[in-house]
């Protein structure tokens, strides 16, 4: 499974990077991000037609995107 780590990056970089991965044909895509990027990444996934499974960790969030 592909994991994309966008922790430590400020907007718009996380969305920009994850968008490239969601467009690359891999499925599923796991994303590790900081909490401030969560809503923007969920918006991106929904907008591109992906299902998202969100897991809140201590200081970060893991989102697993699956093509619906």
């Amino acid at each position: 499974m592909k994991t994309v780590d966008v922790r430590g990056l400020l907007c718009p970089e996380p969305v920009y990077i994850v968008r490239e991965h969601l467009s690359s044909g891999t499925d599923p895509v796991t994303v590790l991000c900081e909490k401030h990027s969560r809503e923007n990444l969920l918006w991106l996934g929904e907008n591109l037609g992906w299902q998202a499974e969100v897991e809140d960790l201590l200081d970060e969030v893991r989102i697993i995107f699956r093509k619906g």
Binding site: C11, Y16, R19, N47
Partner: peptide
């Protein structure tokens, strides 16, 4: 709400996200 007066313009240009 992660408000940012520049982020709105930026996200609209890059992602068509107008939130």
């Amino acid at each position: 709400f992660r408000l940012c007066m520049v982020g709105g313009i930026r996200d609209f240009i890059l992602f068509k996200n107008y939130r």
